[in-house]
Lab assay of single mutants.
Amino acid sequence: MGSVRTNRYSIVSSEEDGMKLATMAVANGFGNGKSKVHTRQQCRSRFVKKDGHCNVQFINVGEKGQRYLADIFTTCVDIRWRWMLVIFCLAFVLSWLFFGCVFWLIALLHGDLDTDYKDDDDKSKVSKACVSEVNSFTAAFLFSIETQTTIGYGFRCVTDECPIAVFMVVFQSIVGCIIDAFIIGAVMAKMAKPKKRNETLVFSHNAVIAMRDGKLCLMWRVGNLRKSHLVEAHVRAQLLKSRITSEGEYIPLDQIDINVGFDSGIDRIFLVSPITIVHEIDEDSPLYDLSKQDIDNADFEIVVILEGMVEATAMTTQCRSSYLANEILWGHRYEPVLFEEKHYYKVDYSRFHKTYEVPNTPLCSARDLAEKKYILSNANSFCYENEVALTSKEEEEDSENGVPESTSTDSPPGIDLHNQASVPLEPRPLRRESEIGSRR
C-alpha cells in the first residue's frame, strides 16, 4: 500500500517518465508532432483561472445545437444578457408577425380586404367582416399587437362572423401568456443567479507553507467582502497533476483530494472575517514527500473551492481559484488583518494578500521532518523571529508614515537576534492585533 500511495502522490514527473511517455506515443502511432509532453521546463496551462473560470474549450460535440435547444431554459439562463435581450425582442416580434399574417390571411380569404370602410357607412358590411377595420397587412399586424398586449384601442375587434378568427384570438392570448411567463422566468432566474456573489468572495493571491502546531501546513486565505453571511460555508481543495499509471496509461489531469478537515468538520467555516484555511501535510497528503526545492521545480495546480448558500436567496454559490506551484510561498505567513478595537473588531483588507517571511522554516519535506531528519529550532526562537518579522513590518510602515526611528523597538546594537533566540524570552503579545485562523 505504501508503494502504491507514493506512486499515486508523486508530484514532480521525472525525466524517465517523460521519455517513457514519448516512447509510448511513438510506439502507439501518436508521434505526429502534435502531442505535447509536459516536462519541468514546460509548465501546463492553468486549468482553473484565478477568477474561477475553467480554462476549457469543448470541440467536436455531436448534436450540440439539439442538446442546447432541448434544455432551452438553461440555455437562456446561461447566455449573455445581450443575447437574452435579442431573444426577448424576437420572441414578441415574431409572435406578433405570425398572428398578424394569420389574421391577414383570414381577412384575405373572407374577402374583407376588398371592402373600403372609410367611404361605406353600411354597418351590415362591417358585421360581415371577420375582424372589423382590418383591410391590410398593417392593420392585421396592429390588431395582433393589440390582442397579445391587451391594449385594446377599440377600432379593431373580432366579430362572430368567422369562428376561426375567434379561435385565433383565444389562441394568441394563451401563447402570449406562455411567452411572458417564459421570458420573465428566465430573466428573473438569470438575475437571481448567485454567480455575481463570487465577486465579493476573495482568495489570497498566494498560498503559503509554514509551520503550525509543530507541523508543516499548506495555507491559503479566504474572505467575504459583504456583511451578509454565506450560510453553510465549506471549503474543498484538489491537486491536479499528470501521472502515468503502473500499466503505462497517461492521465493528463489526475485529481487528488486535499484534506482540509472534512473528517473532523473544520472544513465548515464561519466566514465573517478572513480565515486562513489549513491543510496539514501528513502522510496522507500529496505534498508529504515534497521539499522546498521540489515545490520550486514541480508542475501541478491546486484548485480551491468555497461553497455556501447566499443568505438573501438561499441559492448555492461556488467560488473557485487555483494556485500553481510557483504561487506557493515556502516559509511565509499571512499578515494579520483582524484588529481588536474598543467595542468592535476591524478588518483591514489592505493586508489581505500580504505575507511575511518566517525565518528558520524547515526546507525539507514533511516526511523528513516526521522522521527527525531535520532538527527544528527552539520553539522560543521560532516565536521570537516570528515577532521580529512582524515588528520589522510595523517599523517599515512607521518610517513610511514619517514616525521617528527613535520610537521604534530596535534591538541594541551589536546583538545578533538569531543568537539571542536560544535565550528564554518573556511572551510578547501583539500590541493591538490578533489573527483569527482556522485551528486544527
Results as ranks from 00 to 15, higher is better:
residue 3 S to E: 15
residue 4 V to A: 08
residue 5 R to A: 13
residue 6 T to K: 05
residue 8 R to F: 05
residue 9 Y to T: 15
residue 11 I to H: 07
residue 12 V to I: 03
residue 13 S to V: 07
residue 14 S to Y: 06
residue 15 E to V: 04
residue 15 E to N: 08
residue 16 E to C: 08
residue 17 D to P: 06
residue 21 L to F: 09
residue 24 M to P: 13
residue 27 A to K: 10
residue 27 A to R: 13
residue 27 A to L: 05
residue 28 N to K: 06
residue 30 F to L: 14
residue 30 F to E: 15
residue 32 N to G: 07
residue 35 S to L: 07
residue 41 Q to T: 12
residue 43 C to M: 11
residue 49 K to W: 03
residue 50 K to P: 08
residue 51 D to L: 03
residue 52 G to A: 02
residue 52 G to D: 02
residue 54 C to P: 14
residue 57 Q to A: 11
residue 58 F to T: 15
residue 58 F to Y: 12
residue 59 I to Y: 13
residue 60 N to D: 09
residue 62 G to A: 15
residue 63 E to Y: 09
residue 64 K to A: 13
residue 65 G to H: 10
residue 68 Y to S: 14
residue 72 I to A: 12
residue 72 I to Q: 13
residue 79 I to H: 07
residue 83 W to T: 09
residue 86 V to F: 08
residue 87 I to Y: 14
residue 87 I to N: 15
residue 88 F to M: 13
residue 91 A to F: 11
residue 91 A to E: 05
residue 93 V to P: 01
residue 96 W to A: 09
residue 102 V to M: 12
residue 103 F to G: 01
residue 104 W to K: 01
residue 106 I to P: 00
residue 106 I to F: 01
residue 106 I to Q: 06
residue 112 D to S: 02
residue 113 L to R: 02
residue 113 L to M: 10
residue 114 D to S: 12
residue 119 D to K: 00
residue 119 D to M: 01
residue 120 D to S: 01
residue 121 D to S: 14
residue 127 S to I: 15
residue 129 A to D: 04
residue 132 S to Y: 03
residue 132 S to A: 05
residue 133 E to Q: 14
residue 134 V to D: 00
residue 137 F to V: 05
residue 138 T to L: 03
residue 139 A to F: 02
residue 142 L to S: 02
residue 142 L to V: 05
residue 150 T to V: 04
residue 155 F to A: 14
residue 161 E to D: 01
residue 163 P to N: 03
residue 166 V to A: 03
residue 166 V to F: 02
residue 167 F to P: 02
residue 170 V to P: 02
residue 170 V to Q: 00
residue 172 Q to A: 04
residue 177 C to A: 15
residue 185 G to T: 09
residue 185 G to V: 03
residue 185 G to Q: 07
residue 185 G to F: 05
residue 186 A to I: 07
residue 186 A to E: 14
residue 189 A to Q: 14
residue 190 K to F: 08
residue 190 K to P: 12
residue 191 M to A: 12
residue 191 M to Y: 05
residue 195 K to L: 10
residue 204 S to I: 00
residue 205 H to T: 10
residue 205 H to I: 04
residue 205 H to P: 08
residue 207 A to C: 09
residue 210 A to T: 11
residue 211 M to F: 06
residue 212 R to A: 05
residue 215 K to D: 02
residue 218 L to Q: 01
residue 219 M to L: 09
residue 222 V to Q: 02
residue 222 V to C: 13
residue 223 G to D: 11
residue 231 V to N: 04
residue 233 A to G: 14
residue 234 H to Q: 09
residue 241 K to R: 11
residue 242 S to E: 12
residue 245 T to K: 08
residue 247 E to K: 06
residue 248 G to C: 07
residue 252 P to F: 14
residue 254 D to H: 05
residue 255 Q to K: 04
residue 256 I to F: 10
residue 258 I to G: 02
residue 259 N to H: 09
residue 260 V to A: 09
residue 261 G to V: 04
residue 262 F to C: 09
residue 262 F to E: 04
residue 262 F to N: 05
residue 262 F to T: 11
residue 264 S to W: 14
residue 269 I to L: 12
residue 270 F to W: 09
residue 270 F to S: 08
residue 272 V to H: 08
residue 273 S to C: 09
residue 273 S to D: 05
residue 274 P to S: 03
residue 275 I to M: 11
residue 275 I to G: 10
residue 277 I to W: 02
residue 278 V to N: 03
residue 280 E to D: 09
residue 281 I to F: 01
residue 285 S to N: 00
residue 291 S to V: 00
residue 291 S to H: 10
residue 291 S to P: 02
residue 292 K to E: 05
residue 294 D to H: 06
residue 296 D to G: 05
residue 297 N to A: 12
residue 299 D to G: 06
residue 304 V to R: 00
residue 305 I to L: 12
residue 307 E to P: 01
residue 307 E to A: 05
residue 308 G to M: 07
residue 309 M to G: 13
residue 310 V to A: 05
residue 314 A to D: 03
residue 317 T to S: 09
residue 319 C to S: 11
residue 319 C to G: 04
residue 323 Y to M: 09
residue 323 Y to T: 06
residue 325 A to V: 03
residue 326 N to H: 09
residue 326 N to F: 03
residue 326 N to D: 08
residue 329 L to N: 04
residue 330 W to H: 02
residue 330 W to P: 01
residue 338 L to K: 02
residue 338 L to Q: 08
residue 339 F to I: 15
residue 342 K to F: 05
residue 342 K to V: 07
residue 343 H to Y: 07
residue 343 H to K: 11
residue 345 Y to F: 12
residue 345 Y to R: 05
residue 348 D to K: 01
residue 350 S to W: 04
residue 352 F to N: 02
residue 352 F to I: 08
residue 353 H to W: 03
residue 353 H to L: 02
residue 354 K to I: 08
residue 355 T to Q: 01
residue 356 Y to G: 02
residue 356 Y to D: 00
residue 357 E to C: 06
residue 358 V to D: 11
residue 366 A to R: 01
residue 366 A to C: 01
residue 366 A to Y: 01
residue 370 A to Q: 09
residue 372 K to D: 13
residue 375 I to S: 14
residue 378 N to R: 14
residue 378 N to T: 09
residue 378 N to W: 03
residue 380 N to E: 13
residue 382 F to E: 04
residue 385 E to R: 11
residue 387 E to K: 02
residue 389 A to Q: 15
residue 392 S to T: 12
residue 400 E to G: 13
residue 400 E to I: 07
residue 401 N to C: 10
residue 404 P to K: 10
residue 407 T to I: 11
residue 409 T to E: 14
residue 412 P to M: 11
residue 416 D to W: 05
residue 418 H to D: 11
residue 420 Q to L: 09
residue 421 A to K: 05
residue 422 S to L: 05
residue 424 P to F: 13
residue 426 E to G: 04
residue 426 E to F: 04
residue 428 R to G: 13
residue 431 R to W: 05
residue 431 R to I: 14
residue 434 S to F: 09
